[in-house]
Design a protein around this nucleic acid. Structure first.
Length: 277
DNA sequence: CTGAGCACCTGAGGGC
DNA sequence: TGCCCTCAGGTGCTCA
C-alpha cells in the first residue's frame, strides 16, 4: 500500500475522523512491530489528549496532540481502517485506537500490518525533527521549490544509479519503487545511468515528472479508509496508469517494445530500453 | 564517507 | 496436494 500518495491520502481521509477527538484507549495486540512499542511514551505523548491536526513527513503519518505526537509508518503492508468495534477480527491487527469526543460514541481505528515492517512511536513535538528516524530525511518532493537544483547538487560525485539515488531518503523522501520507475520513464532517463551523469536540465525534467506523478496519484484518490471498507483494501495506485512498473515483457505504451526488468540494489526496476536510452 | 547487501516478516504464486 | 523457491509498494544497520 504505502508510498507517499497513499500516506497523504490516508492523512486526508483520517483527519476528519479523528481531529478534535481523543484517543482514550490504545490496545496493543503485540509487543511491537519493527521496534517494541513504548507504552509509557504512547501514554505520555498521545493517549488522553485531543488530536489537533495530522501531518505527514516522508511516509510517516503524524497525529499531533497538546501533549505530543504519535508517529506511524505503514511499512510495506500496513494500513489503518475504521471498524465498528475494538474486536480485532482481521488477522494481523496489531493496534486498536478507541477515539471519542467528551460525550460522543467511540470510533475504532485498527492498525493492520501483515509483514510487520511498520512502526509506531510517540514523542514530544519538539523531538520530532531530531528523532533518529526523521532527522536524516531529505526534502519533501512536493513542497520544495528548488528540488531540481538540490538534486543536482546532491548528485555531484555520486556513483550510484539514478534510480537508487531517487529512492535514497536522504536525497529526497517519498519516492518509492513504483514512482521512481514511473518518473524515470516519463523523463526518458535510463535508470542505470549514474546520478552524477545527469545534467541540471535532466534533473529539472525529472523533478517535474516526480512531482507530477505523485500529484496525479494523490488526486486519483490514493487509499482512503472508505476505500478500504468498500473495496477490501485495493490500493490507490491501481487507479493511476502505470507505464512500466509491473509490466515486464509487455509492450511499452509509447513505442510498443517490451518493457525490461532488472535488479538494482535488490529492487526490481522496470523500464523501456527504447524510450529510456 | 560511499555503496552493496542483509535483515526484518508473512503470504501469494509458479514449477515440479 | 504439498514442497520449495521467488517475489512483494520500505528502510535501518553492518560491512568492505
Amino acid at each position: 500500500m504505502p508510498e507517499l500518495p497513499e500516506v497523504e491520502s490516508l492523512k486526508r481521509s483520517l483527519a476528519p475522523l479523528v481531529q478534535g477527538e481523543t484517543c482514550m484507549e490504545l490496545t496493543l495486540h503485540r509487543e511491537g512491530l519493527r521496534e517494541a512499542f513504548d507504552q509509557e511514551a504512547l501514554h505520555n505523548y498521545f493517549v488522553g489528549s485531543p488530536v489537533e491536526r495530522l501531518s505527514r513527513r516522508s511516509k510517516y503519518l503524524i497525529l499531533h496532540t497538546q501533549k505530543g505526537c504519535l508517529v506511524i509508518h505503514l511499512g510495506m503492508s500496513g494500513y489503518l481502517i475504521e471498524k465498528p468495534s475494538a474486536e480485532p477480527e482481521i488477522k494481523h491487527t496489531h493496534v486498536v485506537f478507541a477515539f471519542s469526543q467528551p460525550h460522543g460514541s467511540k470510533r475504532y481505528i485498527h492498525f493492520v500490518d501483515v509483514r510487520r515492517f511498520g512502526r509506531m512511536f510517540a514523542c514530544r513535538a519538539s523531538e520530532l525533527s531530531t528523532h533518529r528516524f526523521l532527522s536524516g530525511l531529505g526534502p519533501e518532493p512536493l513542497e520544495t521549490k528548488d528540488l531540481a537544483a538540490r538534486l543536482y547538487r546532491a548528485a555531484k560525485g555520486r556513483r550510484v544509479p539514478i534510480k537508487t539515488f531517487l529512492m535514497d531518503n536522504a536525497v529526497v523522501v517519498g519516492v518509492g519503487n513504483i514512482y521512481a520507475c514511473e518518473s524515470l520513464f516519463r523523463s526518458a532517463i535510463n535508470p542505470v545511468r549514474l546520478a552524477s551523469s545527469l545534467s541540471l536540465k535532466e534533473f529539472e525534467n525529472l523533478s517535474l515528472q516526480v512531482q507530477k506523478t505523485l500529484t496525479e496519484a494523490i488526486a486519483a484518490g490514493g487509499t482512503t479508509l472508505r476505500d478500504f471498507r468498500t473495496t477490501q483494501g485495493e490500493p490507490g495506485y491501481f487507479s493511476v496508469r502505470l507505464d512500466v512498473y509491473g509490466r515486464a515483457h509487455q509492450p511499452c505504451h509509447t513505442c510498443g517494445q517490451p518493457i525490461e526488468v532488472i535488479k538494482q540494489s535488490g529492487r526490481s526496476t522496470f523500464y523501456c530500453p527504447v524510450c529510456q536510452p
